[in-house]
Design a protein around this nucleic acid. Structure first.
Lengths: 215, 215
DNA sequence: GTCAATCACCTTGTATACAAGAAATTGCTT
DNA sequence: AAGCAATTTCTTGTATACAAGGTGATTGAC
């Protein structure tokens, strides 16, 4: 197992909640667990620290750093702004083929909603957003969007469990597609921002999901 | 010298052009240069790779990866969108004190322009933008903006050498301040995006600066 | 003379040994 | 018994030794 894979595995363990906020990631224990020496473990831990999932205190070790309510609000607000930017650029550049695939993803979303298939909805929702990132024609922005999207995915996932959220999200997707189809960059940005933003009831859902994760 | 400092020093060497695109960063040479063993060098190199300044080919080494024209265009476009987002939020939240410090920074910018002091202008221009990042009230977004700003700083710096650019940039700052003062989030976003965007003559300047750097 | 295969050397990647600092435990003092 | 200090132990940080893979050169064959 290589340091990259170890870092991915550790990320997964953070996301799934095996590691809690404040936990110290002991190098020796992890080395034993992954069957390697401390060296590749240290490299993996460094990656966690750089990506913001953990914090390093010199001569003390690295500690899991789960975002608190304020951090999450800030990250979701930033995500909303980045999605808005993606929508703005995509409205100017999206291809007909990509528009069609957006509508296909939406159709599959709808099918998942009616089937009550939360996992399926989550998957198709992801492709919907990924297509928009890609259609910015800006691979750098695309990567940044993917990075933040991935970082927030564990929290977005919990939100979908809420009654009626999937249907509402679907409707918002439709308005986004309409704006993109019309090449209306302002409307594309505004609808996407509103879609991603965490406000009103969604805020309470988010806090609730935090309490669940902290159990 | 600790890995963090070594990484900073290496970044600096990349920015100042001592390391060129495609150069391999030899662990042994660097270890000798910094008077440490390969271990802290490897940690520093990892940081460079994660931050996108270098590329790692397994069993081959890490290589400096200077952005090409396309990369730069994408990065500047992304920066423009992020600045626009910062302007949008700052317009809603900026304090009177911060507005005053923006105007002060602008005044010092003007003084630098008339004095032909490019370095002074660069410095005050940076504080101008940093204040806006901060006034988003969103420290996560602020950090992201600072990160990308820092990454692009070597390229922005060269652009200021161009005749008339400083005066034009100044005028744009004034329109930004006006929009922020009026709490007009749309205009703040639009003026900041236009200010940062690389279009028309600025595009040619950027390419020219690239050729200079590649000498 | 050129191309290919093999071999030697060099570099990266991993394990381990060593150094230095932090925490915990134990013993002493009040 | 409680608090403080010293020592011990454990962890991180760094250096070095070892393993594995890649590059390049040299030699041999066509």
């Amino acid at each position: 197992m290589r340091p990259n894979d170890i870092a991915d595995a550790l990320e997964e363990l953070v996301f799934t909640g095996e590691f809690r906020d404040g936990d110290r990631l002991d190098e020796i224990t992890l080395a034993a667990r992954f069957g390697v020496s401390r060296t590749p473990i240290r490299e993996a831990l460094q990656r966690l620290v750089v990506s913001g999932l953990a914090e390093q205190l010199p001569r003390r070790g690295v500690f899991i750093r789960q975002p608190g309510p304020v951090d999450l609000m800030e990250m979701f607000e930033t995500m909303a702004e980045i999605e808005a930017a993606c929508g703005r650029l995509a409205a100017l550049r999206i291809t007909d083929a990509a528009l069609a695939s957006l509508q296909q993803a939406n159709a599959r979303c709808l099918a998942a909603v009616t089937a009550g298939d939360a996992d399926g909805y989550y998957r198709e929702n992801q492709t919907f957003h990924h297509v928009i990132y890609h259609e910015t024609g800006n691979s750098f922005l695309e990567q940044e969007a993917l990075r933040l999207n991935r970082r927030l995915s564990p929290f977005r996932r919990v939100q979908l469990r809420w009654r009626g959220r999937m249907a509402q999200s679907m409707a918002e997707h439709e308005t986004v597609v309409a704006a993109l189809r019309d090449g209306d960059s302002v409307r594309a940005a505004d609808t996407l921002r509103a879609h991603v933003a965490v406000q009103g009831e969604k805020f309470h859902q988010l806090i609730a999901s935090l309490r669940l994760a902290a159990q």
